[in-house]
Amino acid sequence: MTVFTVFFIIFLLTLMVITALAIVQTKNLFAAAMLSGIFSLMSAMIFFLLDAADVALTEAAVGAGISTVLFLGALALTAENERAGTAGRAAALAVVTVITAVLVYATFDMPRLGDPNAPAQLHVAPWYLEKTPEYIDVPNVVTAVLASFRGYDTLGETFVVFTAGIGVLFLLGKAPVGQPKVSPAMTFAGKTGLRHYQIPRVVGRLLIPFILLFALYVQFHGDYSPGGGFQAGVIVAASVVLYALLEGEEQARQALPAWLLRLMAATGPLIYGFTGVACMLLGGNFLDYSVLAHDPVHGQHYGILVIEAGVGVTVTGVLISIFHSFAARGAK
């Protein structure tokens, strides 16, 4: 890492701090949503400069893409400005100050950036780097670690995504009882979306197949380049959201009905788990893909492809369900 890159990162961090302060300070919720999108763009840039392209891709797709859309969907249900809260400000400030001080103190124990003696460089990382060509033989070591060496963790993460989806659907899935229905034109994406605006519609419809193609590339090329199931799932969800924005949410719901989305959300963890069980039935350990083919390395490749597909299906199902549950909720 050159001195220039360090300055580059410091500059971006400074802009991030300014953005964060502005998010706290502004009362306009729309401005806060836009600024949080900017914040996310910059943090993705920093991940990228630190050579963590997989993380940067996730941050780009989730932070700057889907969550901005979800924020806007939620904002369409609320008032324009944050209500001023005055109660307990001093206490809140005190708590934040203490926690900040403790966290800053904790950073003194952290190894310096790029320290060769840091635990991260000495513990299992060298072993992963050394053994990946031998055991798994994929160029993107991140995928090897995520899907194979640390397959259990990723299985857990897939269940976390699934559980979080269930939680959100419990809270938002059903329309509140006793509230007046509003016309679909006044809900986010609603019945028509931007259908009457020709230019976005034509350009957007042209883009959807390419976005899906790109998502498939990110999904199945994850062994070779940044990407994988999580990122691809978000990109697929983004393309469906784009369709919903252009043609109306009802149309998108007809194309991908709610039951199908729920089924997708549940199928992913099942695919993942059953891959592990299949490995056990073939005589290996749980999620030890080497037994899936005659050649252990090929077995690893098959295993990674299948479980990444499972992750992708879950993420897609959960994210589109969340988008629908925001969009379908009529504003007051």
């Binding site: 729309f30 999108g37 700057a64 893409g65 901005t68 976005p200 957007g204 990122q231 983004a238």
Partner: peptide, 17 residues
């Protein structure tokens, strides 16, 4: 490439909002 695609969707979401 991801950014370029995602950014477009974000702008459309703002328009819809």
């Amino acid at each position: 490439l991801t950014y370029a695609l995602i950014n477009f969707i974000g702008v459309l979401a703002v328009l819809e909002f």
